[in-house]
């Protein structure tokens, strides 16, 4: 009986493997698979739904370009510093190749897109990180672009919105990555003293050096359902404290409960919500 039991398990496992193989074989680009419920949706339909799974409501990661398209009034976006890129300051082996690969993949020069535009006619400076580029990690370029964007917002006296999506500081640029945390935070201090609004939007995932700098410093901190947000990695914490962590640990909901977020906003309500906040601050 015990033997049969194992065979059955094996069979189930095989069926699952076949199933996922079929799913993996679906032509890329045409369909999108939800990483939460595995449901397959037309990419077009997914995009219309702001990359939120129509079946389970899972918020999938989206590119910086898509986020800006969803949020900024058509034809109003002007990108800043598009060409800024890393010069591999530590001469880190293999880093240049990895950058090249991600540049090709994302058509971006680094992990953040910055610029200005309008949200329902209200002007903003905006930065959107893209987790497809080196996991959205922050090196010199990300730090510099964000700092320049903040300085632009100060100059123009308009609000700054930043969507973070990052695994943290970029290891390959060593201590220079670490210092970007101070640089961006110092710029936000300058901006804050001018009485200007900073909205931090912490999207999946926002961890490490990014969560421990500008992402936590919004006048208003917003997140999306179930986004992962935290300082230290789950595995590291489990190793340190030698106990298992609750399932909702470091989710947006966990942070809201612990007083670290102002609100969690479903992506579909993102634009309306931001418009209201911007409007209140513009009067």
């Amino acid at each position: 009986m015990l033997k049969n039991f194992f065979t059955k398990n094996k069979l189930i496992k095989q069926t699952q493997e076949v199933k996922s193989k079929i799913i993996d074989n679906v032509p890329k680009g045409l369909f999108g698979k939800c990483s939460s419920c595995n449901n397959i949706t037309y990419t077009k339909e997914l995009k219309n739904n702001l990359f939120v799974c129509p079946t389970c409501g899972h918020h999938m990661p989206i590119s910086a370009k898509d986020r800006i398209e969803f949020l900024i009034d058509a034809g109003t976006f002007i990108e800043y510093d598009k060409k800024l890129s890393s010069n591999n300051p530590l001469n880190f082996e293999g880093y240049k190749d990895k950058l090249k690969q991600d540049m090709k993949k994302t058509k971006m020069n680094d992990a953040v897109m910055t610029g200005e535009g309008k949200i329902n006619d209200l002007p903003v400076v905006i930065g959107v990180m893209d987790s497809n580029f080196r996991m959205g990690s922050m090196g010199s370029v990300v730090g510099e672009k964000i700092t320049r964007a903040i300085e632009k917002a100060i100059e123009k006296k308009i609000p700054f919105i930043l969507f973070s999506a990052s695994g943290g500081a970029r290891m390959q640029e060593g201590v220079l990555s670490l210092m970007q945390m101070a640089k961006t935070s110092a710029a936000l201090e300058k901006m804050s003293k001018q009485g200007l609004l900073f909205i931090s939007y912490l999207t999946h995932p926002t961890t490490g050096g990014v969560s421990a700098s500008f992402a936590s410093l919004g006048d208003i901190n917003i997140s999306e359902p179930k986004a992962l947000i935290g300082f230290a990695g789950r595995r590291i914490i489990e190793q340190t404290i030698r106990q298992e962590l609750p399932d909702d640990f470091q989710t947006a909901e966990f942070l809201l409960k612990n007083g670290q977020l102002d609100m969690i906003v479903p992506r579909k309500e993102m634009k309306d919500n931001l418009t209201t906040i911007l409007k209140i601050h513009s009067l």
Binding site: M181, S216, A232, G259
Partner: peptide, 25 residues
């Protein structure tokens, strides 16, 4: 900074981030 459950609950990220900003001012 200590990587622990309580540290995360009490906002380790926010505590560090705030120091960076305030020290600048």
């Amino acid at each position: 900074a200590y990587p622990g459950k309580e540290a995360e609950e009490r906002g380790q990220s926010e505590a560090i981030a705030r120091n960076l900003r305030e020290m600048a001012g």
